[in-house]
């Protein structure tokens, strides 16, 4: 499973960076969404994928007995998803407002503040 995931994550990262390098601000946000998902998948995969072994210990069971999935990366991914959701919804609102004010969908036209 891990090799497949590694390839998938790599492809998502590559796609995200390609999208972010485009000039359109909409594609920029799509790139941001993809890259944050790629990071979540990366945490999930790197911490070890354990099938069919939820981190639940039965009543009176041995806490150190069987191999179980590590619950911590799941908590990390959950936190990261929530944060990414908040930040990305901000980014979507931002590009909408920016489009309303600047009236272009092209990063190359937005260089008033550059030097």
């Amino acid at each position: 499973m891990e090799p497949i995931m590694a390839v998938v994550i790599g492809v998502i990262y590559a796609a995200a960076i390609y999208m972010m390098l485009r000039r359109s601000i909409v594609k920029l946000v799509i790139g941001l969404i993809l890259i944050s998902n790629a990071a979540n998948l990366l945490i999930f995969t790197v911490a070890g994928m354990t099938r069919d072994a939820p981190p639940l210990i039965p009543m009176n069971g041995d806490p150190l007995g069987d191999v179980i999935a590590d619950p911590l990366p799941q908590a990390l991914v959950l936190t990261a998803i929530v944060i990414a959701f908040g930040v990305l919804s901000f980014a979507v609102v931002l590009i909408r407002r920016a489009y309303q004010i600047v009236r272009v969908d092209d990063m190359d036209q937005m260089k008033d503040t550059d030097t």
Binding site: M20, L28, I35, S36, V87, L94, R97, V102, M110, T113
Partner: peptide, 19 residues
Amino acid sequence: RAQMEGAIKYVTLNLLSSV
């Protein structure tokens, strides 16, 4: 207008750095 243009660059690069 300037704030929007500045903010897009600021937001993008800081999000990239967070990722």
